[in-house]
Design a protein around this nucleic acid. Structure first.
Lengths: 208, 208
DNA sequence: TCGTTAACTTAACGTCGTTAAACTAAATAA
DNA sequence: TTATTTAGTTTAACGACGTTAAGTTAACGA
């Protein structure tokens, strides 16, 4: 195997190949299945070669996470064109749930696992609406707040956004973590999501 | 070291010693810190001796879980004496949150991690109100349902219970997973919990 | 042409969960 | 009492893991 000096682009391609290989294993078999040795085998390198492109295993997982935050935000962006504010919030909730349930392993890594959270490690841009689904939610909620949609005693739009997020996240994360649990006689996820949306909105909105 | 035949009670004591040692490490340093070798060192046995009392590492974690489900249910039981139904629901939510935030590692293992879920592996008794916090929530909600506290179009008490749980769980689990995340400008956990309770109840209850 | 350096591999360390085999002392059977 | 079974435990080992150190090879700059 002849080593060649690589251009920055070629290095980026290798990085992407590593991420893609890791993601594939990750989607199919979860975090623990993502091992340096198996990634290496998949991309045709020795395990140690991965360390030339990523600091350690966590950095690879972080990279997977990053691209999936983008994917989530991307999915939300189409919804943001909906003109009706309330409808838009509801659509966001449904889109978010759809992402969560169709990418449970990603969702776990993104929102159900305590972060190492070295903010500098991430390429993501906070408050950039195109890259941040939470920023999009905040945006709608602030608009609705400005339009006096919410009950008058509610004075903090960001608190409202966080509560909406927590409600939907609660439904999604319980589904991911405990859906197969015989302990609870779970109702349909659709019913649970719907009642959560309906109740929260009724509790938060000004008009019934 | 002289091996002696042990009574069933002595065996149980060893089991408990193992669980206690494991729990101690678990509370301080999380799941990954619970290694067979370190547990063994703590209880004064060789690592392999643990397999005489537990099938594998997961069984030890499961045992930790079980006793903590009991602890949670136990904490709820005092609250169940509150006569006012609505107040009781709110107190349950607060008690639950208090447990979650003061035992984050336990909470993660119990409610934020997909289960292996061999129902026979657990000693817990489903529907036994004294051992099952969810059964307690169901009980109050059913009572409130029978007393026509909820909006008339809501016809499924268990669905209501699951929605309430999901809402509170959403607040707790986001706090545990992402509180240190600089990404979100988090409001106080008290504010978030309060708005969640208030909104959900307003959205679910018949009168205002 | 000759070092330097980038790219990569092999070998190894120390960790982990877990299994197989050996050992030891008590309980039981003769 | 003595021989044998058996419960309790340990030592040794396997195969995996993430990661580091040291080596190898080929292209590049001088």
């Amino acid at each position: 195997m002849p080593p060649r000096h690589k251009t920055e682009q070629q290095r980026q391609e290798i990085r992407n190949a590593i991420i893609d290989a890791a993601r594939e294993m990750f989607i199919a078999r979860g975090v623990e299945a993502v091992t340096m040795r198996e990634i290496a085998k998949k991309v045709g390198y020795s395990p140690t070669a991965l360390y030339l492109h990523f600091e350690d295993r966590d950095a690879i997982l972080q990279a997977i996470c990053d691209t999936d935050f983008l994917a989530l935000a991307n999915g939300m962006q189409a919804i943001m064109r909906e003109p009706d504010l309330i409808k838009r919030i509801n659509l966001l909730a449904q889109g978010y749930t759809q992402f969560a349930l169709s990418h449970p392993n990603h969702y776990r890594l993104m929102f159900m696992t305590p972060r190492v959270c070295d903010p500098n490690a991430s390429i993501m841009q906070k408050e950039n609406t195109e890259q941040d689904a939470y920023a999009q939610l905040k945006l709608v909620v602030r608009e609705a707040f400005a339009a006096h949609c919410f009950r008058p005693e509610l004075t903090d739009a960001e608190l409202i956004a966080q509560t909406l997020w927590a409600g939907i996240h609660g439904v999604c994360s319980l589904q991911i973590a405990l859906a197969n649990d015989t302990w609870v006689n779970w109702r349909n996820i659709e019913q649970r999501l719907h009642l959560m949306q309906q109740s929260l909105m009724r509790g938060l909105l000004r008009h019934s």
